[in-house]
């Protein structure tokens, strides 16, 4: 083949390589795009307090048993709820306390991530205040009691009588 074709080919190669690099970057660009998307659509807002209708009605006819659970992953911390279960009427606001203590001799920061059972509880669980909204920094040997204030939406399906709320503390890398 002639020299001309080679030149066209090299040009094509350049274009396609640039395109590949752009797509590689696009893979990374998906990360902020995904976060923006979740923010805009309100999916996945673990770190913001919920807004609750002031006129929410307390449903005295129902009682829901809440089991509280606490876990620690990869941290020299002790973490427990001060009461292992509570009873609540849907629509009634409630405060429960958790306690963490740093048993190591270093300052460590951690972040709590909630999880719910049944899973759809997330939709009906409205939290005004939670230690999981921010990171927690504990000095060596420090112990801290922290509240969670929430209300369970009376819209929750009638067949739900017992729910579990669980928090897991994960270690944060220094500087985060």
């Amino acid at each position: 083949m002639t020299q001309g074709v080679t030149k066209i080919n090299l040009e094509m190669l350049k274009k396609l390589l640039i395109f590949s690099v752009i797509m590689f970057g696009f893979g990374y660009a998906l990360v902020p795009m995904y976060e923006k998307f979740c923010e805009v659509t309100g999916i996945n807002n673990l770190l913001q307090p919920d807004v609750v209708d002031k006129n929410i009605k307390v449903d005295m006819t129902r009682t829901i048993a809440i089991e509280l659970d606490a876990n620690v992953r990869g941290l020299p911390w002790q973490f427990k709820p001060l009461q292992s279960n509570v009873k609540i009427h849907p629509g009634e606001s409630l405060e429960v306390m958790y306690e963490i203590s740093n048993v190591s001799d270093q300052e460590i920061s951690g972040q709590a991530i909630p999880s719910y059972s049944p899973r759809f509880l997330e939709k009906y669980m409205k939290k005004f205040e939670c230690f999981c909204f921010t990171k927690q920094v504990l000095k060596p040997g420090e112990t801290r009691q922290m509240p969670v204030k929430f209300v369970i939406d009376p819209q929750i399906p009638v067949d739900v009588n017992t729910v579990t709320i669980s928090y897991t503390f994960f270690a944060l890398q220094p500087g985060k």
Binding site: F19, S20, M23, F24, F26, G27, Y28
Partner: peptide, 10 residues
Amino acid sequence: VLVMPVLAGT
């Protein structure tokens, strides 16, 4: 060329 670089990024 459209999606392989995305996998490489992942």
